[in-house]
Design a protein around this nucleic acid. Structure first.
Lengths: 353, 353
DNA sequence: CGCTACTATGAAACCGTTTCCAATTGGTTG
DNA sequence: CAACCAATTGGAAACGGTTTCATAGTAGCG
């Protein structure tokens, strides 16, 4: 049915080995035969079978990215960075989207075997002891992005610091009643603490340092199990509730830009002006954040994706594989959703019993 | 190095064929040997080599999605729909992201060969004559999403109708000076007309039908070659220019939500209130559109992705492959960026010479 | 002119599965 | 008890490439 290397060999009147050499641009072929073979390839419209090649080569020319919910905005940004790097190479990018515990287990079992990819970038997942065994057993190069483990090259932001950055920004503007909305706090896939947890810690620490009280009513916990799913509506409802308190917050910091969008939606519905009546700080700096002029903590998602892919490329070319830890940069990007608290508004609200 | 089916066979004291039968849950193995083999597999921690299996089987258990710039919001939405469907099956999803003409050609040449995937979903690309040949030559099932060709099952919205919907909405609200911002009008990858072009047609037709004039100054052409790249800044600048006209538009319809975001950004910078001073209509209804309460033409991106994946699943199970055309539904989603034109503002502006 | 050294080439082994086909076994039937 | 049948089983041939290794041919050199 399909044309194989043998058909080409027959047509060109040479052996299969020679055809293979021509395909792989080996030097060991005379100019004359090379031409003959190339013509035969063109005439038959032959394309080498990828699977067969993989099998015999032992290499796949593909790198795998394992990522939970790859359509989440932050995942998309990182993937864009990774994709842009591999675009220029002969490596293919295979995205393993993890949307259930079953898939997670399956992929951690199968992908590292090395018969599917030549390297793995794991995003936003702390590998379990079993995972580590699976990953190290194969001798595949591994990079952890937005996660950390002593056995692998890891790249991660300092979430607590990020939470502190956001909080300090509001404190600096004069806010004294600052709420936090975020979650989930436990990763449903590996039961580890999520970055949200640490961002919350940074928030608490900053308030304490500033001598400000920590109110339970100012902690909004997104009850969703899945990261990024419906976090907008969750944040919207939490905000609604908070803003109806006798003494509502004047500023809200969030654990993700998506949460921040929910907060802003609630503000709109309540007729509150941002930042006049309420300041909002996001986290991640996804592309959309700039459309709506959201003040946010920038994770340089795109750049970190790019960086991890470049690092992977080095590893594939025999680069040093000793585990290193890279602290990703974090910046507060001030846009137009934060301002000094409106004292007038504050007074009006406090007068309510 | 790695353990193969032969190692298992040796350990279990059986032939490789038997081991293979156990793996594939064939009935033709006695209960006793099945147990022995299973134990051996467990002891050796054996996992079948995926590539070898593919080669031997001729099936890949993967379906490919070819899509330009898969991190574009609209592409992400469609992918999410597709991904959600395949999540429940044993098929893997392989995304072929097309970011250059070179890649486009490479993928159209290689992917349809059938040694990589068992089926192809092509998004937002009209296949050229060569592509059609390549796609039909292999006997792979093919589905076109957001594109149309008589040789394949196609699913596409009526862009002209969508452009008309948006325009009619503004006309109905009483707007008489309506601008259009969109582009690119030619797909850089296949030199075909883009949906933008047809949306523009719908806009023009509607204005003509309503007896309204068509001003050249009210046509904003996004000069970007690449779909979705920097369309925000392009739209922002086009809006800036338009709003400084002696008689600026009171409403702007766009060829994508991203363009609409650019329009809104410009409005904010000019101190114009949306929808009080300017009405804005987007196109696509990407997730972000609802955050910012953008009135837009909904393409049901997620649903269309889902639909195409389900259809593919049917084909893979031997479903009918005769080319059909499915017109995707289109709806105007009215949110909060459109309203009646402000007559006062209009008057003020028209008085300027 | 004979020997060596090197280049170009093809046959065959290999990668790790699945599957066809033949062989063995044990049980049933006439 | 011979013959036949069904149920298991294993050897070997695919699948379509790459690569080792041996060999034929040729050029260089003394």
């Amino acid at each position: 049915m399909t044309i194989t290397i043998r058909d080409v060999a027959k047509r060109a009147g040479v052996g299969v080995a020679t055809v293979s050499r021509v395909i792989n641009e080996s030097e060991l072929v005379s100019e004359a035969t090379r031409e003959t073979v190339k013509r035969a390839i063109a005439e038959l419209n032959y394309v080498p079978n990828h699977t067969a090649r993989r099998l015999s080569l032992g290499r796949t020319m593909a790198i795998g990215v394992m990522v939970p919910f790859f359509t989440r905005p932050s995942a998309v940004e990182r993937l864009r960075g990774i994709s842009d790097v591999f675009e220029g190479t002969s490596f293919n990018l295979v995205v393993y989207s993890i949307e259930s515990l079953r898939r997670r287990e399956q992929y951690f079992r199968e992908v590292p075997r090395g018969d599917r990819v030549d390297g793995v970038i794991v995003i936003s997942m702390s590998p379990s002891a079993d995972d580590v065994r699976a990953l190290t057993h194969s001798s595949l190069p591994v990079i952890l992005l937005d996660a950390e483990h002593s056995s692998f090259i890891s790249m991660l932001e300092d979430s607590a610091h990020g939470g502190a950055l956001a909080t300090q920004h509001l404190v600096g503007l004069g806010h004294r009643r600052i709420a936090f909305i975020g979650g989930p706090f436990v990763d449903p896939f590996n039961f580890a603490r999520t970055p949200s947890t640490k961002r919350l810690e940074g928030y608490r620490q900053t308030l304490t340092d500033a001598g400000l009280p920590i109110h339970d009513a100012f902690l909004g916990v997104d009850p969703n199990e899945m990261i990024g799913t419906h976090s907008i509506t969750a944040a919207r409802e939490l905000t609604m509730r908070m803003m109806r308190l006798a003494e509502p917050p004047t500023g809200i910091i969030t654990a993700s830009d998506t949460h921040a969008f929910g907060v802003m939606q609630a503000a709109r519905e309540l007729g509150l002006h941002v930042p006049g009546d309420l300041s909002v700080v996001g986290y991640d700096d996804i592309e959309t954040a700039s459309y709506v002029e959201l003040t946010t903590v920038s994770q340089s998602l795109y750049d970190s994706g790019k960086r991890s892919a470049e690092r992977m490329l080095q590893l594939l070319q025999g680069g040093d594989r000793t585990p290193t830890f890279e602290r990703l940069p974090l910046d507060l990007v001030q846009r137009k959703t934060t301002a000094m608290p409106a004292t007038s508004h504050q007074e009006v609200m406090t007068r309510q019993p």
